[in-house]
């Protein structure tokens, strides 16, 4: 992707990517490293991934350490990094609430401070439209200006909202750094794997009875495209990265031929309480409320800045479903 698009003089020469074990981080490193000369990529993580992009350099940085900002600033200054893409966030929340907070909120703080110290010109940060929160009083399309209300029980969402507030404050004090925040909705595709896709890959699904909100999905390739553009072009601001089109949850599940168990809220809560606490550290409504109320984002700004998405919501879902089928037959 990206062929035929010219990136102006603003394209940075040296790019650092944090979080090589996340989907976005690893894919983006591979894409940027494969790009023609002129772009040098440095991957940052706690440990070197087993499959690491050829042509990229690796540097070890642990964002959960108290001195991470100093370590990171040293690396960034030594390599003369011009742009940083920060994707070192948990794909799934873990029961270790403190470590999650340490990585997501404090880790981002370290990245911000290191960027300021090393005079980095551009900072791209991954966020999520989950931060708007599933609320019955949401408008049908949430714009980037809408307040982030999150979910009271989802600790990962809470941490990220805190992170975004901190980022807004920091960026007002450092106007010389271009900050781009990309809020993507639930990612679906052949290779993306998270608690959400794991849930939707089940043959039998339990969903809240009596609710059927509209859902919006984005394909993994479109997300990586948006990140690639965001780091290579100059586009400061906040963008929703979503696919076109919306579909009710029940229609998605029917398209995939899943069996649906519609359970009343309290029953669903009791049945899934312990597995949910064990896996994510949150009560189940932190996930099921996203299947109960509306949280669709308005992607117009993102589409204008990063180009039309290749896959619609429906196509992203079908690509996910068909890849699951092929995996079963292999």
């Amino acid at each position: 992707m990206g062929a035929g698009v010219t990136f102006g003089v603003s394209a940075p020469g040296v790019i650092a990517v944090t979080g090589l074990h996340t989907f976005i981080g690893s894919q983006l490193t591979r894409r940027l490293a494969g790009r023609a000369a002129g772009v040098r990529v440095i991957g940052l993580d706690q440990r070197r991934p087993i499959r690491f992009a050829e042509g990229a350099r690796f540097a070890k940085v642990d964002l959960t350490r108290p001195t991470a900002d100093g370590d990171l600033a040293e690396v960034l200054a030594a390599e003369r990094v011009e742009a940083v893409v920060h994707t070192a966030f948990r794909t799934d929340p873990t029961p270790d609430l403190e470590l999650d907070h340490e990585l997501e909120t404090i880790g981002t703080r370290h990245v911000m401070n290191a960027c300021a110290a090393a005079k980095v010109k551009r900072l791209v940060i991954a966020s999520s439209t989950e931060l708007y929160g599933p609320r019955p009083d949401n408008p049908n399309f949430l714009t980037e200006r809408h307040p982030l209300r999150g979910h009271p029980h989802a600790h990962a969402v809470r941490d990220r909202i805190e992170m975004e507030a901190m980022l807004a404050d920091w960026s007002s004090r450092h106007p010389d750094v271009e900050v781009t925040v990309l809020r993507h909705c639930w990612i679906f595709g052949p290779s993306y794997w998270s608690r959400v896709t794991r849930y939707f890959a089940l043959p039998v699904l339990a969903v809240p009875l009596g609710f059927d909100p509209l859902m919006q999905l984005v394909h993994e390739d479109d997300v990586v495209n948006a990140f690639e553009r965001a780091v290579l072009q100059s586009c400061p601001g906040i963008y929703n990265v979503v696919g076109r089109g919306v579909l009710p949850v029940s229609t998605l599940l029917r398209l995939a031929g899943k069996q649906i168990w519609r359970l009343p809220g309290p029953v669903l809560h009791r049945l899934t309480y312990f597995p949910s606490q064990g896996q994510t550290g949150d009560p189940p409504d932190a996930f099921y409320d996203y299947l109960r109320y509306l949280w669709v984002a308005d992607g117009q700004r993102g589409w204008e800045a990063f180009g039309e998405p290749v896959y619609s919501t429906r196509e992203a879902w079908i690509s996910f479903v068909s890849s699951r089928r092929m995996r079963r037959y292999r």
């Binding site: 019955p136 009083d137 714009t143 809240p208 009596g210 909100p213 509209l214 509306l294």
Partner: peptide
């Protein structure tokens, strides 16, 4: 009204029949 959107069963049907939550953005 907002609170109808919290009422089970009402929300999916109203949305399919053309009901929209009352707010300025919509």
């Amino acid at each position: 009204a907002d609170w109808l959107m919290t009422l089970p069963f009402a929300q999916p049907y109203l949305a399919r029949l053309g009901g929209v939550r009352a707010c300025r953005e919509n």
